[in-house]
Design a protein around this nucleic acid. Structure first.
Lengths: 268, 268
DNA sequence: ATAGTCAGGTTGTCCGGACAAAGGATTGAC
DNA sequence: GTCAATCCTTTGTCCGGACAACCTGACTAT
């Protein structure tokens, strides 16, 4: 498989093993005075190198020992950097072989993302129309999802998301009171998740359900679809890192203009 | 928060700090003669304890140093065990505070799972009807997804999945030739992913797209739905750890009988 | 009473080393 | 020439220790 390359390895260390260490030509280095962890610096540099194509898919990374020595780091630190990229699905390790850049196109392993951010990343310049922003007693289903008493006061936010002037999704969200103030102006200008993060809430996990159903007359009118037209639906409950439910949403999408696309990894 | 449970266990080890170490009353231990890694043994035991409720949500885990000493392990090993559970979303670490069991209900963070396994786990006893299992030239879209030449031979498998005697989903899958033999009998008795794993293929990642559309007359007849009824659709390309595309599938589901439910974590 | 300071406890990061396990390639025997 | 045994390389696991960063609660000074 490997041609017998003319290995004239005297001391003239003219590229010792060029075909088995793609990091040799990379300029890697860490800043020990920086507060950002060394393993993180390294993993970011490697990820950037993969991103811009300096590390091509399938190329070997060179063994950890040598890499550590070259960077003046310990092997555990280098391993931690590599491991984080393995967890992201960018690298694959094989005992006895080495670490190589994964072959396929891995974009993003499905983050807990907001529709607004998704659209903005796609260059769609989304517009938002706030249809409602009120306080009201929680219906039974909402109270159950948010783990609060039925009838307790909750915020109800209804929004219409448009792209290119056309409606794309109808978003109905319920939030517990007292988390942060819900300014309608901000709601129109940015996404809900961004507002929550800005308010110091660290999102942890979400439970989602994606389905489909026929549009009611009211739904059809909102989204500019005929009654009975297929709609893509999503319900989601979001939790912060203390386990509190911080948001429950019911969304409907026009399937001609939106679909859920994501990448997922097998969990080791 | 935690009542001081009266644990009369043996020689008066009168629970040093009962409210700050919920693992104290657990019987944890590792088998050093086992080939399974120590950190994995520990993480499994902790996960099982969480699963069965021995470790209640919000309870502290006790500091790593002491836990390591109690088990006769080193701190890095204990950390590795805990870290794997943090990655799964079962635990939350806070510097200066400790490690605690996450409060919310985290079931499964969206694995790369097969419909068959999902149904079986739900106790549905799925049935499969193999409608087609043939070799044919790859259409353009399939060839692009599988990264092979257009017109190259591929397997086409069409199946109908039923629960309680009613059709639930129509599955159309394309596979490259030469991976493994596709026995129709096995296809009817188990899932495609299980067959692939059994054939030594290690799945790595998949790219999915979930949408909705109205049923055509043919689709409606297959799934016992009227034409124009809303259907839930999913396309998926699966890759193995070498980056090869090993499967491309187009599935349609009856939304009244199936929806995608999953949990997702914010990636740190 | 309030605010700032300090100390204790816990996780985060990093180091250096050691041996085991697995895969590939070479070598040897037949 | 083919197959098996062996060696080498590389990652996997594990250890023990050290210091830094951070949070909490108590204490002190205002």
């Amino acid at each position: 498989m490997q041609l017998p390359v003319n290995k004239c390895h005297g001391y003239a260390r003219a590229v010792p093993k060029p075909e088995v260490d793609s990091t040799a030509s990379l300029e890697l280095g860490v800043d020990r005075s920086s507060p950002v962890p060394l393993y993180f610096q390294l993993s970011q540099q490697l990820e950037a190198a993969i991103e811009r194509g300096a590390l091509t898919p399938g190329s070997l990374l060179g063994n950890e020992i040598e890499l550590a020595a070259r960077l003046g780091l310990s092997r555990p630190t280098v391993r931690q950097a590599i491991q984080s990229l393995v967890d992201k699905g960018l690298l694959v390790r094989r005992r006895g072989v080495g670490t190589q850049v994964v072959h396929s196109q891995v974009k993003r392993p499905l983050e807990l993302s907001s529709l607004y951010d998704d659209l903005e990343a796609a260059g769609q310049r989304p517009a938002t129309e706030v249809l409602a922003n009120v306080l009201e007693p929680a219906p039974a289903q909402v109270a159950a999802a948010l783990q609060i008493a039925e009838g307790a006061q909750v915020h109800r936010i209804e929004r219409l998301r448009l792209t290119h002037g056309e409606p794309m999704a109808h978003l109905c969200n319920y939030l517990p009171t007292g988390l942060f103030d819900l300014d309608s102006g901000q709601l129109a200008a940015t996404g809900l998740y961004r507002m929550m993060r800005a308010a110091g809430i660290t999102l942890h996990s979400a439970r989602q359900s994606i389905g489909a159903r026929a549009a009611t007359a009211e739904e059809g009118e909102r989204l500019d679809e005929p009654p009975g037209a297929p709609l893509l639906t999503m319900q989601r409950t979001t939790f912060d890192d203390t386990g509190r439910a911080v948001e429950y949403g019911t969304h409907t999408y026009r399937p001609s203009r939106y679909s859920f696309e994501f990448q997922l990894l097998v969990r080791g």
